[in-house]
Write a protein that binds this DNA or RNA. Structure first.
Length: 306
DNA sequence: GAACCGTGGGA
DNA sequence: TTCCCAAGGTT
């Protein structure tokens, strides 16, 4: 959950998740749709599938117990080099280096590392630095301290260098370049996309469709996407009048999406042959495991019907 | 090696 | 409003 997601955002999701899946075996035994539902709204939904597969591998391949080495941990789905090191260090006291956003920022400033940290050469150098700095003992304290230094003092903007325990050796502070390091990602133009979502309702319920596992909103429930005629054809459905609801924009990291909702009444007796279709009460649809922008869209339907 | 994958908060 | 990016990993 904490991959590319701030702690404060994760906390409520984490609490609900653990309440439903208290241990790795419970998670492994859970249906994937339920896991996805708990993740809805958090983003990066591949993490949910990876975590679920990870639990299943631990249950079956590792007899329910986490492996302890970085190499074995990194073989698990969703666990890369940094997460493997974090588990190895915090759970098993192993001398392993992490490299998250906080550590990158601290290292770039402390050692005056130039270049965008995402560039391979810079990234490689940061990993070498992180490994070279590992203490012989107290790896948990060191690792937590390093991350907390980045999270609380060596912050992106307005770092509190006056309170920093390692300010004396910091290249960025010496040169007054705290605001320039780490260097920003070179930005490309953000693509714009437009997509129509067809809100099929029988007056009480809304028809939602589960998206394929990969890609945007993978595994989540959303209204069928596409032009109304195409959606109708796909479901073998005769559509009545389609009403346009107000469009709205949603800004993702990689593109801007304009959602154009179309509201259509259909027969409650409609049974689609396709799997993955679900009728959901309109009042509950926004909590049925849909991504955040779809929640907005569903609220429009709720208000449109009064 | 670059593109892709969400959402929310801070400035 | 707009941009940046956060306890990164996979394709």
């Amino acid at each position: 959950m904490l991959q590319q997601t701030q702690v404060s955002t994760v906390i409520p999701y984490y609490a609900r998740f653990l309440a439903s899946f208290p241990d790795v075996l419970a998670l492994a035994a859970a249906p994937i749709d339920l896991v996805i539902e708990h993740w809805a709204g958090l983003g990066y939904y591949a993490r949910a599938r990876n975590l679920h597969r990870c639990a299943q591998q631990i249950a079956t391949v590792h007899a329910g117990k986490f492996p302890e080495t970085e190499a074995q941990l990194e073989e698990l789905p969703g666990i890369g080099r940094s997460t493997a090191a974090a588990i190895a260090a915090f759970a098993f006291g192993r001398r392993a280096a992490i490299l998250d956003g906080n550590v990158k920022r601290v290292l770039c400033r402390q050692f005056g590392v130039a270049g965008f940290p995402g560039a391979k050469a810079v990234h490689d150098r940061l990993w070498l630095l992180a490994e070279s700095l590992l203490p012989e003992n107290d790896i948990e304290v060191y690792t937590q301290g390093l991350m907390d230094l980045g999270a609380t003092l060596c912050t992106r903007s307005r770092p509190r260098c006056g309170d920093c325990p390692v300010a004396a050796g910091c290249v960025a502070k010496r040169d007054g370049r705290q605001g320039e390091l780490p260097e920003a990602k070179p930005r490309a133009a953000v693509p714009e996309r437009t997509s129509t979502f067809v809100l099929l309702t029988d007056g009480q319920r809304l028809l939602l469709e589960r998206r394929p596992p990969s890609g945007l909103w993978g595994g989540l429930l959303v209204p069928p996407e596409g032009e109304p005629a195409a959606v109708a054809a796909r479901f073998g459905l005769a559509l009545g009048e389609a009403t346009k609801l107000p469009p709205f924009k949603h800004v993702f990291t990689h593109f801007r999406l304009t959602l154009e909702p179309m509201l259509c009444q259909i027969d409650a007796q409609f049974q689609a042959a396709e799997p993955g279709l679900e009728w959901v009460e309109i009042g509950r649809a926004a909590d049925a495991g849909v991504p955040a922008p779809i929640k907005k869209l569903i609220r429009q339907v709720a208000s449109a019907r009064g």
